[in-house]
């Protein structure tokens, strides 16, 4: 597909930080591609780092491995500074949080935004227009707040405003916004088996989403998407309900 790569002689207006999930995870790759299609359609000057991008170190840091985190941060900051990057957009709230909040003290100062905020800006500026009678017209959508966009960074409105532009019925989960329940993946849980308990966190959250009666669960994080998709499979609801990233939803519904 048509993807703009970093040009050593000219920094892009905005760097798209794809993230490890967005690069390697098959489900998350679809989100990456949807977002690229939006960026191409809007015509913004963006670029990706390609092979030069590395894990931000978030899962290592949350698991307790500060050495590994610092090493990844050092290398990434070197790369970003070398290309003279000023602004970064990330489709993963963990990457977003780390680069935005944790890189500045280590010498990496950039304007960092999450893709849902960028999408909202595009809509506000009229750069994205929705199709009439789109796919989500009249359907019930619920929105799952990811911890790292919500509580970690207080971003609750932008994703909702983006979803409101669809002619869909937006129903809130019982626990939403500051009370939002985690999908179970954060803090490096994604990479290990859950501790023994009564149920799994992702099943608890998926059941809550199913209670809303929505046919689409909108998410903003590749890990939430994995956890909630697994939850739907477990509840044998994957045929009736789908989990989609907000970028995918917009890409399907916008005029191109």
């Amino acid at each position: 597909m048509d993807v703009k790569r970093i040009n050593p002689s000219q920094a892009p207006e905005i760097l798209f930080w794809v993230g490890c999930a967005g690069s390697f995870d098959q489900r998350a790759q679809k989100v990456t591609k949807a977002f690229i299609e939006i960026l191409n359609a809007v015509g913004i000057d963006y670029a990706i780092l390609g092979k030069e991008e590395m894990c931000t170190g978030d899962p290592a840091r949350r698991a307790g491995n500060e050495f590994l985190f610092q090493m990844m941060a050092y290398n990434n900051i070197q790369t970003l500074n070398m290309y003279n990057i000023k602004k970064i957009v990330a489709t993963c709230p963990h990457c977003f949080n780390t680069i935005k909040n944790e890189y500045p003290t280590l010498g990496g100062d950039y304007e960092v935004i999450h893709h849902t905020t960028l999408l909202q800006q595009f809509i506000d500026e009229g750069k994205i227009k929705m199709k009439d009678g789109g796919e989500f017209n009249g359907k019930k959508i619920t929105y799952h707040d990811s911890c790292y966009l919500g509580r970690a960074n207080n971003i609750y409105e932008a994703p909702r405003k983006v979803l409101e532009t669809l002619d869909a019925e937006l129903v809130e989960l019982k626990r939403c916004r500051t009370n939002g329940l985690c999908c179970g993946a954060g803090g490096a849980q994604m990479f290990k088996e859950e501790e023994a308990g009564d149920t799994r966190v992702n099943l608890e959250r998926t059941n809550e989403a199913l209670e809303t009666g929505a046919t689409t669960i909108a998410a903003n994080c590749p890990f939430c998407i994995t956890m909630l998709s697994d939850g739907l499979k477990n509840a044998e609801k994957e045929a009736e309900v789908e989990v989609k990233d907000i970028a995918e939803i917009i890409n399907d519904s916008m005029v191109k």
Binding site: V3, C20, K51, M54, A60, A63, F191, E193
Partner: peptide
């Protein structure tokens, strides 16, 4: 599993066992 994740990040620059050369294979 965490030790595996650590060594993947250290060696492959990603928490999963993929080659760093394939990071942009999706394109």
């Amino acid at each position: 599993e965490w030790n595996g994740m650590f060594s993947n990040i250290e060696n492959n620059m990603a928490p999963w066992k993929f080659s760093p050369d394939d990071r942009d294979a999706w394109t």
